[in-house]
Nucleic acid binder design. Structure first.
Lengths: 215, 215
DNA sequence: CCGAATCCTGGTAGATACTG
DNA sequence: CAGTATCTACCAGGATTCGG
């Protein structure tokens, strides 16, 4: 395949040769949430041309970042899954995402908000030092989709979908309460008072949420 | 300029729109070492086409990552310099570089080793937790170029060029002793014994060096 | 010499249609 | 569902040229 090379002996150059092409890192981002099928990936990346998606998946497989696996019989589907090497990109993607989030106030016209992008934003906003020794589960219901957040002994697991046994359910009623909490533009008391959010569980946990997820 | 967009409300997508094009991150990497002129950048990126370099510099300027500045009179030169926003990319570049360095054993045929790439590799290999409260200066002479490393109270400053008052000078005589020290394939005693390195200063500091810089 | 702009070519991405 | 195929448009690579 001989992807274009930078002709430099440099770790950054090597990284960019492997995942520097358009869309590659976003595909890895989506796969960080677990194995995904081709059509799941298409859904999470509404603007990607299908030929580019298949090309990138082949390249990721070839580079050892992902594997392609056919599910056993009744499912009759193909799933793509990150290897450990691919998962090791997570810190770099978080660092990039955190940097990019600084100029991100409102969605631009035509921009999609995908579950995977939101999951990523929870990852980038997570403050491990605020979550020391904490174990708590959240379920964030944000209109079209729901995200599950589990913090176990201070380490975070995120994914799209419902939480099996949340300590707190955070349900968006109007506006963007979760984004406002995370950016610090509103306090937990604000969003509870103005009716933009409804919680199930101990409302005090919303304060812990705001401490642990902050840009 | 409307660089191609990913149409997703996601920090990572925003980051890739700003610095995801070919060569952009490597230019930022080189500018991390301080203001550089157009020709300095060309030297540090031997394979970059000149039109791409000027296009990228304009884009970086437009995106607010870098500034273009004409030096006052006698110099009659233009320098490019990162803004604070641009410098904030450093952690992300380090994370990417660290990931990319894992598959980097030997230079591939035709690959250049530039001073900026080596400076970057010291940044990625640096272990702040090993350098707590340490203040020490190194000068690494690696054949064609020399790198200055200053650790002050545990924080690292790197750059090409000589160190004004090094506590230890590490001079390469043969092979790749510094790379071997950092990868752990040789110990300080090894490289001192096999004659691949010569030091000026307290040889015990080579042990500290190997502790603080390790992949 | 420095700092580009220009031109041409070829490769990669985008859009959409189509298929096992 | 999971991709190919095809066509177009754009971007990168390489060489040359140009103005200060």
């Amino acid at each position: 395949m001989a992807t274009r090379e930078y002709k430099q002996f440099c770790g950054l150059a090597r990284a960019m040769e492997m995942v520097g092409e358009r869309w590659s890192m976003l595909i890895v981002r989506d796969l960080l949430n677990g194995p995904r099928r081709y059509t799941d990936l298409r859904k999470g990346l509404p603007a990607i041309p299908t030929n580019i998606l298949s090309t990138r998946l082949k390249q990721l497989e070839e580079a050892g970042l992902a594997t392609r696996r056919a599910l056993p019989h009744p499912e009759r589907a193909v799933v793509y899954e990150l290897t450990e090497y691919g998962r090791d990109l997570e810190p770099a993607l978080i660092a990039l995402g955190r940097w990019g989030a600084r100029t991100m106030t409102e969605p631009r016209p035509g921009e999609a908000i995908t579950a995977e992008a939101v999951a990523m934003s929870f990852r980038t906003a997570f403050r491990p030092e605020q979550a020391q020794d904490t174990t708590v589960g959240f379920e964030a219901r944000m209109g079209a989709f729901t995200i599950r957040l589990q913090i176990t002994d201070g380490s975070l697991a995120v994914g799209p979908g419902m939480h099996p046994a949340p300590d707190l359910v955070i349900e968006r009623l109007s506006g963007h309460p979760v984004r406002e909490l995370m950016s610090g533009s509103k306090t937990p008391a604000d969003v509870l008072a103005d009716g933009s959010v409804r919680v199930e569980g101990d409302p005090a946990l919303l304060g812990r949420f705001a401490e642990m997820f902050r840009f």
